[in-house]
Amino acid sequence: MGMTPQPPLTGPGMAARPSPDQPDALEPVPAPDGRFTGAMGVGMATVDRAVGWARANSIWPLLFGLACCAIEMMAMSAAKFDVSRFGAEVFRTSPRQADLMIVAGRVSKKMAPVLRMLYDQMPEPKWVLSMGACASCSGVYNNYALVQGVDRIVPVDIYVPGCPPRPEMVIDGIIKLQAKIEHDRQFGKRAERVPATVTA
């Protein structure tokens, strides 16, 4: 029994390590783009894709308006633009049920801890869309009151420029984010994203 070589193990959580008996066995390490390769990679990649497809097409944004951009965000979900065509219309008012935070507007230093708390309350996986110039870099208001870019407090996945961006631009941002979600690694650890802290 002990002499028979072990068959290569497949399945989630099991790693088939290269051994003297099986020098050809491959370790299923994720490639730099997050996909699995190797013996178990085939199965994982299929699941990964399916989950990614499902996640990308059922984004639930957090209903969280800050300033002017929030009006365009509402316009995006209302008549004429109708973001539900792209599967991102279920605005949730509770961060516990949302997976996309659209930072729509300028973030003041008074608001920053609240925003960070909302982000922390959202379950993984979660994404952040920085909508408009103010959220991305504080826009025309480079001053004491605003956080100079929301990426200092939460990790941002996609920036949409404009002041405010047209609803089409936000929809475009969401479509690009969907592509990103779909091709991202769905299981295991995502790329390390260390958020910066707010400095007054």
Partner: peptide
């Protein structure tokens, strides 16, 4: 209030 204080007047 004040969560949207932008400092417009100062700017």
């Amino acid at each position: 209030i004040g969560f949207l204080h932008t400092g417009i007047e100062k700017t």
